[in-house]
Amino acid sequence: MNWQAIILTLRLALTVSAVLVIIGLPLAYWIAFSRRRWKFLVESLVAMPLVLPPTVLGFYFLLLLGRGGAVGAWLNRIFGVTLPFTFAGLVVASVLYSLPFAVQPLVAGFASVDRKLIAASALLGASRTRTFLRVVLPLSLTHLITAVVLSFAHTLGEFGVVLMVGGNIPGVTRTISIAIYDDVQALNYASANQNALFLLIFSFVILSLVYALNRRAFFIGTVQ
């Protein structure tokens, strides 16, 4: 089994999930509660990766963030950072590509919290932050778990974006899905089978855990 690719993939999926929680929570909060007229534009932008092929995202990523790109050149000059064909670049691209998988469950969770509970919290003197931490977030806990797992699972199974942005560098950007592709190209079916089976079983176990957790959360009354 290609442990190097497996560990790299898990590291990527964990990093991306963590970044998506940090970005996703405020973004989803804004989408769920803002009354701006142009909110629909932000919602559409967030949902774009659902409909676009990863090649489109990867292409513009390279164009913008490549060494010759407007943002890429600036990043390189100021911070000495190069994104294409690096692990960091893979994280940035994967975060963008998995954004809807984190944001949409969170928006659904926040929007399903009874507005009267939010009003009651404010009337009892709570700040917005306290209301969010004590009322909105706990009542959206199952949605948060769903968001994390979907982000993780979606990154785990990513192929196109990784190939476009990361290339195929062992230990740096060669994830398990790329390794499988390589194996198949080289007619190395035994190795491909091992890695594919690992991904299959691992994904199934993760998803089962989540569904089991959500069930339990439902019964102990975390969900209304």
């Binding site: 009874d114 009267k116 509970l117 009003a119 009651a120 919290s121 404010a122 009337l123 003197g125 709570a126 700040s127 004590r134 009322v135 706990p138 009542l139 009354g221 975390t222 209304q224």
Partner: peptide, 17 residues
């Protein structure tokens, strides 16, 4: 939050969790 007004809704809005 700053008004210090008590308001009990018809639905009560007790925090279920």
């Amino acid at each position: 939050a700053q008004r210090r007004i008590g308001y009990v809704f018809q639905s009560l809005a007790l925090f279920p969790h």
